[in-house]
Amino acid sequence: MFTIFKKEFESYFFSAIGYMVLTFLFLIGSLFFFISSVIVNNSSLIGTFSGFFSLTAFFSPIITMRLFSEERNKKTDQVLLTAPVKISSIIAGKYLAATALHVVSISVTLIYAFVISKFSSFDWPVFFASFFGMVLVGSAFISVGMFFSSLTESQVVAVVVTLVFNVLILMLDGLLYSIPFKFLTDILKNFSFTEHFLQSFPLGMIKFKDVVFFLSVSAVFIFLTSRAIEKRRWS
């Protein structure tokens, strides 16, 4: 598993993808920081983190698109699937590599925190709660992207489908208000990423149900990925 993790993580930087994603995230993230903290003299990073939350939804498909589709397209999956490793370790290696890149990309917030702490009092515990929340959100988005990547040979299809899915997730809260049936809203509300992230982590709260929610999303999509790969052998 570690071998696969290492290879996947390194390969982000063999190609332009790793650098591209990091550059754009750092640029746009810093813009969020500038607008929501620097200009308005605000020592909290709530605005920045909610910005990163949406950014993750848009950038995670780029991180995950190649995970399985490229392997399948170039038939390099043959080397993985005929090696004496379990499918679960292949998936785990890839999932962790993508998550690691995500963690690197949100680490830029550490700089923002450091800058603020130089000029005013800074609430570090709240920062770490937000950071932890972002790791969970990112890993959940990555599991979704990985699943769609395992369904298709084309990276373009993978990225588009994942993007559509992620946008639907972001829009879920807006949609909830337009649904007239209360019981339906109540059920769907439980699946809202926004609800589980923005209402707790950036405010400094780590709620058990939110942690479990994001971990479950990851678990479900990792499981679906393993089924998708297993199914390919039988078709």
Binding site: K75, T82, A83
Partner: peptide, 30 residues
């Protein structure tokens, strides 16, 4: 699988890797 070495019709190579790093990777996953 531990006892099999397989060369498929299209060699499963990662184009962005060097030869030595590719072989080290194979060494690792085997």
């Amino acid at each position: 699988k531990k006892n099999i070495g397989y060369l498929p019709e299209v060699p499963p190579l990662y184009p962005e890797m060097t030869v030595i790093s590719y072989l080290k990777f194979i060494f690792g996953i085997k």
